[in-house]
Design a protein around this nucleic acid. Structure first.
Lengths: 140, 140
DNA sequence: ATGGTTGTAACAAGAGAAGTTACAACTACA
DNA sequence: TGTAGTTGTAACTTCTCTTGTTACAACCAT
């Protein structure tokens, strides 16, 4: 199991917008060229980012812009915008209540799963778009 | 995207083995009954746990046993036994090297992805089967 | 030998990811 | 007012993975 590439594509999109929005119009075709995927994929992900109020899109005329400063956009925001699942883990639905383990497994595991997911999300929350942009500039 | 239920099923399997291995034979049919899935699913996951040297299985006669003390089995061991993917994230493969972002995105993001994954795995490593067993006993 | 068990192959159904084509709706601008 | 470039979205295909299922050979204590 892996997360879909939507997350890394969305991050790529945001980096491109942050880098180029003041220089020229950032269209789905331009982004698709940089990422090397179909423009429709980009438009769908841009739609998710727009719904999450991370970007703004000019319909008709075209072009995407950051909806807030890059310091205020974290990888967690991006992740939540493109991955809709509430829980990271798919718990088997119907354990047998006649078995002592089947009866208690949920109450034992649910908070563990939450803790694990929180650890991952906490790490994501610490990484901002501005930091990624700075590092990208350093490597160029 | 969610992890498959193999992880929670594997944990359920181990809890059952730890709880019942001294009382009676723990077969795939017994486990399937507690988890409420097909015995073949259980046998496949048991096979992964066996390859990872977490359990031992008696072929022919039947029955599964912990291969080491429950204090030495962590959720990370279980996770790695049943989820074969090396990286948590699927990175889009061919960013355009002619774009400054496309050229640098991998070197910027690769260590972030690793950090995020490590945070998740670190949390898993802290949770042992013996702790889950203790909590299950308390709730019974 | 028999019966209960494991290990696996083979198959089907369903979900989701990713790619593609097509086209209506929108907006600036000539 | 058209027109060109763009977005939003529907529809379809192809793949892969998950889950469920049947079937059966191999195994081993009794």
């Amino acid at each position: 199991m892996q997360f879909s590439s939507r997350f890394t594509i969305a991050t790529h999109i945001l980096l491109c917008i942050a880098m180029f929005q003041d220089e020229h119009k950032v269209t789905s075709n331009f982004l698709a060229g940089s990422i090397n995927v179909n423009p429709v994929i980009v438009r769908n992900i841009l739609g998710s980012l727009s719904s999450a109020k991370i970007v703004e899109i000019k319909p008709g005329v075209g072009g995407a812009f950051l909806a807030k400063p890059s310091e205020e956009i974290t990888l967690l925001d991006v992740f939540k915008a493109v991955e809709k699942e509430e829980s990271l883990f798919h718990f088997h639905e119907n354990p047998n209540p006649e078995c002592p383990i089947g009866r208690t497994i949920h109450s034992v595991m649910d908070d563990k799963i939450e803790t694990i997911q929180s650890a991952m999300e906490g790490e994501m929350k610490d990484i901002t778009l501005s930091r990624l942009l700075r590092e990208a500039n350093e490597k160029m």
